[in-house]
Design a protein around this nucleic acid. Structure first.
Lengths: 343, 343
DNA sequence: AAGGGTGGGACATAATTGTTCTAACGGGAT
DNA sequence: ATCCCGTTAGAACAATTATGTCCCACCCTT
């Protein structure tokens, strides 16, 4: 399979740029439809005339439809796009990247989404991909734990409504980390549960509670009930943040932030802060899953894009805790760079 | 595998003609090297300028070398060509053709050589391919039976000398069918045996012997010895001829030829003449393998190109007797046409 | 009603392609 | 050895095609 494409690359190397152009255009249409030639040209860095040519081509293939108001994906086109994803992965050697990253991180599965789009869109792509992955992975009886963050929010919004309700329980992995509602774990858990037709339980915990009050909160029956589900969760999906952004997003005091910096924190996940070597340097006093719990969870999926997170991902992800990583092409390459692996 | 190329064909259909051009050019260089631009252009029906462009490209890839005296395949090029063969088979859907033909004929294996060359070259291609197949198939201890014919002669000449001699015996499948020396079974058997570094035994039998003398000849010890090997042959490779051409090639009397026509003979193989329905309508009184013997031979390979032989192949090849068919693309398509299979 | 987007058209320019010419090389015959 | 013929690559140039750029009439939204 890979073999044939290798041969092809030798005999027709120009193919890659041709297909890449069309792929990029299709994906941009997907995200911005209806969209015009000029806007597409700008987004894709392909000249307007070329975009037009490709548009004509794609139109002829019935993948898109050009209206007065702009270009739109046809049904055929949106069905075709996931297939193209697969194809492009092979063509651009992303499958190889996945293997390298797998070996490098020692993890079970690595999924990489094709790059070549704007960062904001890449996050959506990761969401779209992870959503598909989740749909495949989840089965009746599962208890899914999720965390917050922009990436997870994308996953939630990219999931589609199930035809028939599933017997699934979704719970937030940690409570009260003081973020905006849309990207809170609670919101995301609810969204996903609703789309799947499953149930959900939320953790309502004050943003920053005193250390001495934790036990009191924990004793609350409503909290206890959710924590019981959490302990039984067999799938966890969580994001990774860069330490400073997370610290800012959660209303940390300046002293705390300084303390984090002093300790060399670069990454955050599940309320834990890690330094470059992957050591835990700080833990927020929050309620829910603890790092050690991850070892008992069947499938732990970590999802994170954006190349500036490469270092963070590297320090967080560990075969001890994680099974699956979902990221994007440029982040993957950056991680391998940091590790000194040549591609 | 096939799947990816299907996707590719949808997103980049122009690729096929690009690759096809380069493939055709490469193959023509292989057969005619050193050859010039103009001659190539004529043979391939590609405009001279295009040939030049592709030549520049192939040169840049190090697959060919352009000399004052013409273009020549480099070592890399000749190593690359068989890989390209494989790739082209997938790309042009020849693998699918093979499957269809396999199903249609009920045979174990079908090998189809990519078309798009002049008929004379196609025969060489089939020879080249079959030679590779034989090299792969043969193992020490084998006894190989071969017949005559232009196609088999190509096979023989396309085989390469073995580094180390093989423990193999090659014998002609039938004796004395009165053809030119170069395409006689005896000659071919000797050639193949020499190339493999094996032994061979020949059948020297008068061209057209009287029915009543067959037994006398058969009793000859020298003949008996060869026949004994023949009965133990575990691989047979034979060609297929159209009835009229074969009748002419072997000096048949006008009455016999008329008789053949009356009986509706369309195909010949191993001295047997078949009508359209695959029934045997005539047998030359010759010495050697009989049709029934084929059932006991491990691998029977039938090799035949040229589209006008399609009907002949169809009536000769049977799962009862044959395991492997080697032919070319246009013949394959013609056979499927005759069978009413749409491709 | 106006403004920012749209597709289609126009057109100059660049690139590709078809065609022809030429000088030089190679190989066979002398 | 040498001449000669055929074939070669390379160059040149015209014809065609692809491409970059800009404009315009239109439509939708605001």
């Amino acid at each position: 399979m890979r073999y044939l494409l290798k041969i092809q690359e030798k005999i027709a190397p120009e193919l890659i740029s041709i297909v890449e152009n069309r792929y990029t255009i299709l994906r941009n249409i997907y995200y911005y439809q209806p969209i015009g030639r000029r806007a597409l040209a700008e987004k894709t860095n392909i000249s307007e005339r070329l975009v037009r040519k490709e548009l004509d081509f794609l139109c002829g293939r019935g993948l898109i439809k050009v209206y007065r108001s702009g270009t739109v994906l046809t049904d055929l086109g949106s069905k075709f796009l996931p297939e193209l994803d697969k194809y492009m992965k092979e063509l651009k050697g992303i499958r190889t990247l996945e293997e390298q990253l797998k070996g490098c991180l020692g993890i079970e599965e690595v999924h990489i989404v094709s790059g070549g789009l704007e960062p904001s869109i890449i996050n959506q792509e990761i969401g779209r991909y992870t959503a598909r992955l989740l749909h495949r992975l989840l089965k009746d009886g599962d208890i899914l734990a999720v965390t917050g963050g922009t990436t997870l929010a994308q996953v939630a919004s990219a999931m589609h409504e199930n035809d028939s309700p599933m017997d699934i329980i979704v719970v937030p992995g940690r409570g009260g980390l003081g973020e905006e509602v849309e990207i809170q774990a609670n919101t995301i858990a609810a969204t996903i549960a609703k789309k799947l037709g499953g149930r959900y339980h939320l953790l309502h915990i004050p943003d920053s509670i005193q250390e001495e009050n934790v036990d009191i909160i924990m004793a609350e029956p409503s909290i206890q009930r959710v924590l019981k589900f959490l302990k039984k969760a067999n799938i966890l999906i969580h994001g990774v943040g860069s330490a400073e952004i997370m610290a800012a997003r959660r209303d940390m005091s300046p002293e705390e932030i300084q303390e984090l910096k002093n300790r060399g924190a670069v990454a955050e996940a599940l309320g834990y802060y890690f330094n470059e070597s992957g050591e835990i340097v700080y833990v927020t006093t929050s309620v829910g899953l603890h790092l050690e719990d991850l070892k008992n969870i069947e499938k732990v999926i970590v999802v994170a894009g954006e190349p500036d997170k490469a270092r963070a991902i590297l320090s967080v992800v560990s075969p001890l805790y994680h099974n699956i990583l979902v990221t994007d092409e440029s982040t993957a390459r950056e991680i391998l760079n940091l590790k000194g692996v040549r591609q």
